[in-house]
Simulated scan of single mutants.
Amino acid sequence: MMTMKDVNLTLSPPIPITFLSTLHNSNTWTARILLTRNSPTQSLRLCSSINRTAAVTSPAKEDDDGDEAMVDSAADVVRKFYGGINAHDLTSVEDLIADRCVYEDLVFPRPFVGRKDILQFFRTFTDSVGMDLQFVIDNLSTEDSSRVGVTWHLEWNGKPFPFSKGCSFYQLEVVNGKRQIIYGRDSVEPAIKPGETALVAIRGVAWLLRQFPQLADRL
């Protein structure tokens, strides 16, 4: 819905009228410009048809948006991460991981904490599988600037590898001008699939917890 709004802006120091006269070409405003001079400032009145969702952004916010625009998107960082692992190029992966990153691979009993431990984990992984085994991204979320979900599988020389489907979640933030992974979690397809047996086990544990609530403190 389009609504009429008046916006009063005070510009200091004064700026040339020739510059102001070009504002009607802005992608943001379609405006009728009325100028009045007041020393030491100029007042600018914009009588404009604007979308009701539009907002006047403060200079600080514009700077933040500019910083965001200067760095890779979260999705691009994750794509580069998988590309570096596939190429066994851990030097390129290093800058994608925050120094305080926590990485959980649910195959292992404890998370890997810190860039050094995480790189060592992937170094061991790449040394073990060689160049024949590659990650292939099936789907990757792209809308969020700080969180990315991925589904993937492994292929051996272009052919699907058994029991290699997985999904991962990554949380990212801008650190020292670079968007980096600060948290990751991998969940990999199990080689043994218990099926309904897993539901039986879950039902049994839930029954025990209902009967003996104090056991929950030991979980």
Rank of each mutant, 00 (worst) to 15 (best):
V107T: 11
L34T: 09
E155S: 11
D117A: 11
D65W: 09
A216W: 10
V113R: 03
C167I: 07
Y183S: 01
D138P: 02
N139I: 15
G149R: 12
P14I: 10
L140E: 10
M2K: 07
L154G: 04
L23H: 02
G66K: 14
R185W: 01
C167S: 14
C101V: 03
P213H: 09
A54C: 13
R218L: 06
P109K: 09
D65N: 11
R110A: 10
Y170G: 00
P59M: 13
T3A: 13
L140G: 04
D138M: 03
P213C: 10
N157W: 04
G166T: 05
D144Q: 10
P16C: 08
T36S: 15
I202M: 13
L11E: 08
Q134G: 06
N51L: 14
D105M: 01
F81L: 04
D138G: 07
D105I: 00
N25C: 08
V107N: 06
D138S: 10
I137G: 04
R185G: 00
A74H: 00
D99Q: 14
T36K: 09
L154S: 03
E68A: 02
D64K: 06
L208N: 10
V56L: 12
E68C: 03
F163V: 11
P109F: 02
C167Q: 11
R52I: 09
V56G: 02
D65P: 01
K165D: 11
Q214N: 15
R115A: 00
S146M: 05
E189Q: 12
V148C: 04
T197N: 10
V205C: 06
D63V: 09
S48G: 14
D67M: 08
A55P: 01
D64L: 14
R147E: 13
A206Q: 04
I118T: 01
H24D: 13
F108D: 09
E196S: 13
P109E: 14
A55N: 13
L106N: 05
F169C: 02
Y82N: 01
I15P: 00
A75M: 05
P40A: 04
V129D: 02
N176S: 08
G177C: 15
D64M: 11
A216G: 09
L133V: 04
W29E: 07
S141K: 03
G84I: 01
D217M: 14
D6M: 09
V175A: 02
D67R: 13
L133D: 02
F125C: 02
F122Q: 00
D117Q: 08
R79N: 03
E68L: 07
I17P: 03
G149N: 12
L208M: 05
T53A: 15
A98M: 02
K178Y: 01
V205M: 08
A198K: 10
M4F: 13
L11M: 15
R123P: 00
D67F: 06
D64V: 07
K80D: 05
S128Y: 15
D95I: 08
L119H: 01
T18P: 08
S26N: 11
G114F: 00
I202Q: 06
H24G: 07
V136I: 14
L11A: 03
L9E: 13
I137M: 05
K80A: 13
G83D: 15
R147T: 11
L20I: 11
D217V: 10
A60D: 06
I17R: 14
C47V: 11
P162C: 02
P213S: 07
I97A: 00
L219N: 14
F125M: 13
L140S: 04
G130A: 09
T30L: 12
